[in-house]
Nucleic acid binder design. Structure first.
Lengths: 130, 130
DNA sequence: CTGCATCCTACATGATACTG
DNA sequence: CAGTATCATGTAGGATGCAG
């Protein structure tokens, strides 16, 4: 039994389920795996997301301590988001998702090309150790 | 670029995101990793789920070819659900979620005990090779 | 036992405009 | 640039009852 963020979980998998049960957090983490990003960069790279939703999801990720937010007191404003250690620790999980997705396409897909991954996080980043 | 189940994806991670972006599918897979199950067993083991939702989610998983459904022509009816090969292939992913969840509790949790995992899928099942 | 049919509601997300 | 503020909406999921 676990108590995290004020919630009880019977299984650690349920924590992951709960955190990432939305349309956007996984994609945001994915992009941050390639390195820290400004708000605008994320807004451009996470396809189709709205500003409001991006802000909401960034706040949630920050509250869950998966990302860090650094504000630079400049004009115009500059805010940089980066992964915390436990956020960075998601890399092997995302890598597993990436790999399973490929296998799933092989098994059940109708079509695939090698035209790169719009989520910009290439293999070299996925496997990166710092 | 991938085309799966009539949808386009730019990244294989997005496929995983799309499939498991709900409250229940992950838990159902988790329980099936411990072995094939009857409808009623799943209904009892997947805590809090309603019959309607269980049925809906089982249909979705079957449509996506992650589970197989076998009907025994008996009275009363007997239906058994099991993982397909590509469904079974989710095991390492679930294992990674399990492990990351543990680490997350260490990093951000307020409390934890070793009182087992209500999702019944023990480590020996998680690591199983058949 | 294994579902399906209805009805209902909350919440995540979208669209759009505005601000320091 | 990095957000808020409003308003609107679709759909996942819950509650309940019925059926073969």
């Amino acid at each position: 039994m676990y108590l995290v963020n004020g919630k009880e979980y019977n299984c650690s998998v349920a924590i992951v389920q709960d955190i990432f049960n939305d349309k956007w957090k996984l994609g945001i983490i994915w992009h941050l795996l390639a390195g820290e990003k400004r708000y605008k960069e994320l807004f451009e790279e996470v396809k189709e997301i709205t500003q409001k939703t991006l802000t909401v999801k960034l706040r949630e990720l920050e509250e869950k301590q998966l990302i860090a937010r650094e504000v630079f007191p400049e004009i115009p404003p500059k805010v940089v988001y980066s992964l915390t250690p436990i956020g960075e620790r998601l890399r092997p999980l995302l890598k597993e998702m990436y790999d399973w997705g490929i296998d799933y396409v092989q098994a059940c897909g109708e079509f695939s090309t090698e035209e790169g991954c719009a989520l910009t996080c290439k293999d070299e980043n996925l496997g990166k150790n710092e």
